[in-house]
């Protein structure tokens, strides 16, 4: 079978598709209004799954800080407010990133440019997500340590140093791999496929070689 016969087969099949499912303008209008809402809802659903975890953490932070950090007096309220603000800032970052990455914009770009843009944004999002996660972890850990030594900071310095070392060990052995695994699991496959499409479109070196053959 040559390529011309393949074209014929394609035409035959697509003609058949047209006969089976041509839509009139009112059907198209109905799809448009229903599906527009659905795609935005799906986008928000993805965000809310992640946001839910962070929102659930807010009352936990409040309870822990207010009940357990009595030694710092009224400062515990400022402290809990600060931690909640950090979590909320993380949520704002998540929401903005989701909208930028997954909302359908610049769709009329040539495929290669669109892929480049997607890859760039997704990589940046994953990087920022990880960095913010690391910062949150250290802030919580260090605040916990400082509060526990609140009454005798200088006397507790050796214990604080050990605590920081434990925090670092935990970070490299558990937290960092965990966040990386989580991001890879959620977005890694998508990112890999975007990169492979992009590489395929940009295979300049192999084309040069082929032309020289």
């Amino acid at each position: 079978m040559d390529i011309e016969r393949l074209k014929g087969a394609w035409k035959s099949y697509t003609d058949d598709l047209r006969e089976q499912g041509s839509k009139n303008t009112s059907e198209l209008r109905e799809i448009l209004s229903r599906k527009s809402e659905q795609s935005l809802r799906r986008l928000r659903k993805n965000f809310f799954i992640e946001a839910g975890i962070n929102l659930a953490a807010i009352p936990i932070v409040l309870v822990i800080v207010i009940n357990q950090f009595a030694q710092v007096g009224d400062h515990r309220y400022y402290l809990s407010g600060f931690l909640v603000l950090l979590l909320l800032a993380f949520l704002v970052f998540l929401y903005n990133s989701y909208m930028k990455i997954f909302r359908y914009e610049q769709l009329d770009m040539p495929l290669e440019k669109k892929l480049e843009e997607q890859v760039k944004r997704l990589k940046l999002f994953m990087k920022n997500y990880a960095v913010i996660g690391y910062i949150l972890y250290f802030v919580v850990f260090v605040v916990g340590l400082l509060v526990s030594a609140y009454n005798n900071l200088t006397g507790e310095l050796p214990r604080l140093a050990v605590g920081i070392l434990i925090a670092l060990a935990l970070f490299f052995s558990v937290i960092r791999p965990l966040i990386r695994y989580y991001l890879k699991r959620l977005y890694g496959k998508h990112l890999d496929s975007l990169i492979s499409y992009l590489n395929e479109l940009q295979e300049k070196s192999s084309i040069t070689l082929e032309r020289n053959d």
Partner: peptide, 12 residues
Amino acid sequence: YRVALNTVISGF
């Protein structure tokens, strides 16, 4: 075609 291919290839 651009929009359609961007949707199926680069979409999540």
